[in-house]
Design a protein around this nucleic acid. Structure first.
Lengths: 149, 149
DNA sequence: TATTGTTATACTCTATAACTATA
DNA sequence: TATAGTTATAGAGTATAACAATA
């Protein structure tokens, strides 16, 4: 049995691309890019967080994150404030406009995504969640193994 | 039960990102980008194909594809030849150097990817493949539903 | 010395549309 | 008229490294 994992890789890539295509079609109608939406969604219902933490949650590296946050600042959706506890740190938070946008589009986006799941049972969802979690763990373990080698 | 699908979306995104991070770490050591590797892998063991077909298989749109193929041509890894049957069509194929590179790196990449699957059983793989296929189908059906609406 | 964030560089990909040359 | 591919445009994300301010 050689490379029986190949169909899994192919299906993973295709499932993700189908998700991404479906999701981003909606996001682009909101005049946001997927990374910008990710940041708005991450900052929603919080009082803000340092750029470092925002980068960890969205998997955007710091050099890139500065640019994405700049563009959201130009749109008046987020703002930077100095951290009270660390002079090196900038806290990013939604502006009132950003909060209003979040309150409007986040539920709408969930409703849009829900349309894709109407044919799947609760059992299906649990099974998928477990399988995907194991897959993620497998890649992370392999990467960690490579690092120490 | 509201939005029970959300963990599935999160796990899908994280599993894909873990896969992408692991896979592309190897690809970058080969001095290729992921789209470039995708093209080399698609052209390997073929006699070439029109840009249109290459775009369909790699999910790269035609305007972008011209640029990616240009960069691979600069590296002497692929070449364009005129289609014998359709004067509008260009066929892209690996050069001898491209074929040599494919023969060298494709098995190496499979071996690298296999390291991530050592802990998963054949049953696991079948289950994952089925779940991912259903997920992809769900997104594609939702997108098709939106289009006709 | 180490860390947070910005800046700079150079590239790669993306979306979109206009354009050409064939069909 | 429609299709294959190129070109043009403008943006947006990526990797990387050097840098300033602060810890």
């Amino acid at each position: 049995m050689t490379h029986a994992f190949l169909p899994v890789l192919r299906e993973l890539a295709e499932a993700y691309q189908a998700f991404e295509a479906y999701s981003s079609a909606h996001i682009r109608t909101l005049d946001l890019t997927p990374p910008q939406f990710d940041i708005i969604a991450t900052l929603g219902n919080t009082t803000g967080m340092p750029l470092k933490e925002l980068g960890e949650k969205t998997l955007i590296t710091k050099g890139t994150l500065t640019g994405v946050v700049d563009r959201l600042t130009d749109k008046k959706l987020v703002q930077r404030i100095a951290s009270p506890s660390d002079g090196r740190s900038q806290i990013v938070q939604l502006t009132p406009q950003g909060e209003a946008l979040f309150a409007q589009i986040f539920p709408a986006h969930l409703g849009y995504m829900a349309l894709a799941f109407t044919e799947l049972s609760a059992q299906d969802l649990v099974s998928m969640e477990n399988n995907l979690s194991r897959l993620r763990t497998a890649f992370m373990a392999a990467r960690a193994g490579k690092e120490q080698a």
